[in-house]
Design a protein around this nucleic acid. Structure first.
Lengths: 258, 258
DNA sequence: AGATATTTGTTCGTATGTATT
DNA sequence: TAATACATACGAACAAATATC
């Protein structure tokens, strides 16, 4: 199937006028390659046949193909390795990379704390319920480890801030364990929004012993419920946790704004 | 500007995860330009100074700069225009573009119908409540128009399929109108997952007059509640709508699998 | 309307870097 | 260490698009 016309230098495809309207050549090629990848059932780790990205088979120059490759790479679908046996490989897309792609979305109109918590109040309880009774022992170990990072009273503002991030990590850790990967991704995304929000960073720097205490309390109770496999109780605890956290964040946001 | 925020003790405390991939030159340049854009408070529509992408200022060739530009463009942060007065411009990232970036995320491990509906059951009612009493008259016109597309009995399988997509569009239209842009984005994303799922496509092709009838019924009642500004009723109607839709999809998925 | 200037888009040839054997 | 296979980077030239005169 490669090389239908070796003599011609750059045989411009006849479909050129049809599709080239707004979308540019590299985009089209990238889509074509992506379709080939799914059509051939290539899995992460598999090598992408170099013919698919060769000037002969696509009728485009190396530079253009390189841009097409760049698109796939940025979208996280492929990685390239140098050296012999190197080339282009399919790579599974991790949640973290995907979230980075969304960074630009709310760059100019960031969601409010209220917006984020309105959604977290719905999804985090669902998350808690979804993992109830389903966590392995090393999952518990990881969660306990995260909690340990903030079970001591913080001494400095830096420690305060670090502990708040660790509290968020608790939720990320939970999200990592759910069977519902989609739910896990969304919850992680919401946490990363909070983490990056400047308004939150200001709030997180403030000392608040009571909030830390109650938060710790919630999470310990939550772990107990999860271990017991009591989905409804886990859901309810998380619901309360979110409600108090939201109330606090909104109240502080009011104050910090001034 | 490698020194953006002198007041902050921890500029970027915990990167979400260690990125394993070696950062290449275009990636670095792209990041630098992105930082410049936010540091200079450039808004969508503003022109990106050409110096920022000139070989002289970055010490890279035009090809490399072009790749960096490609990255920003793929991420949806910029668009380019040719001609005099043209150049690179900051562009707000639309929800649709952002969703396309996520296409690859669940390419190899697509979420199940159950996973998606578990989340939709939480978020769509929230969406319905959030727009109650807040829709303009032309928002209603658009929603009515969408409903009109499936108020007649479908004649062919194609029509059947088209109507199902229109039903999904109803939710997208709703998502477009909420004040909570984050919620709108997530709901749109979930719909697009359903739309692209092959399992769903198979189900959508089946004729099911009763489901269409009840769905239509729900959406008319929903519009009434929204117009009346009754958030709780809107939430409840959507809750029921999602529950029945989920039940149907899960049941059909069982059958279609065989 | 048409020529022109400006800016992005595409291509080729070549050189360099890097990891494997 | 050397040979290799592959990605990455550079620069010059050309093509296409588009606003202005």
């Amino acid at each position: 199937m490669p090389d239908p016309d070796p003599g011609a230098p750059t045989p411009v495809p006849s479909q050129l006028s049809a599709v080239l309207r707004r979308r540019k050549r590299p985009d089209i090629i990238a889509d074509k390659v992506r379709e080939m990848i799914v059509a051939h059932r290539l899995a992460p780790g598999d090598r992408v046949p170099s013919e698919w990205l060769s000037p002969q088979s696509q009728g485009a120059s190396r530079g253009t193909l390189r841009e097409a490759l760049k698109i796939l790479e940025i979208q996280g679908l492929t990685t390239s390795k140098t050296g012999p046996g190197g080339g282009v490989f399919v790579s599974g897309v991790g949640a973290d990379e995907a979230i980075r792609l969304l960074d630009n979305l709310f760059l100019f109109h960031p969601p409010s704390i209220a917006d984020i918590y309105a959604i977290r109040k719905e999804l985090e309880p669902l998350l808690a319920a979804s993992v109830a009774g389903k966590l392995s022992s090393d999952a518990f170990a990881a969660l306990q480890e995260t909690i340990r990072l903030y079970e001591d009273e913080p001494k400095t503002a830096e420690e305060e801030y670090g502990q708040r991030l660790a509290e968020l990590d608790f939720h990320v850790e939970l999200a990592r364990r759910t069977d519902n990967a989609l739910l896990g991704f969304l919850c992680t995304f919401l946490v990363s929004l909070l983490r990056d929000m400047t308004a939150c960073r200001a709030i997180y720097r403030e000392a608040n012993p009571t909030l830390r205490e109650t938060g710790l309390n919630y999470q310990i109770r939550l772990l107990r419920a999860i271990k017991a496999g009591d989905a409804e109780r886990a859901r309810q605890i998380m619901r309360e946790h979110m409600a108090t956290a939201e109330a606090y964040m909104l109240e502080r946001a009011e104050v910090v704004r001034d």
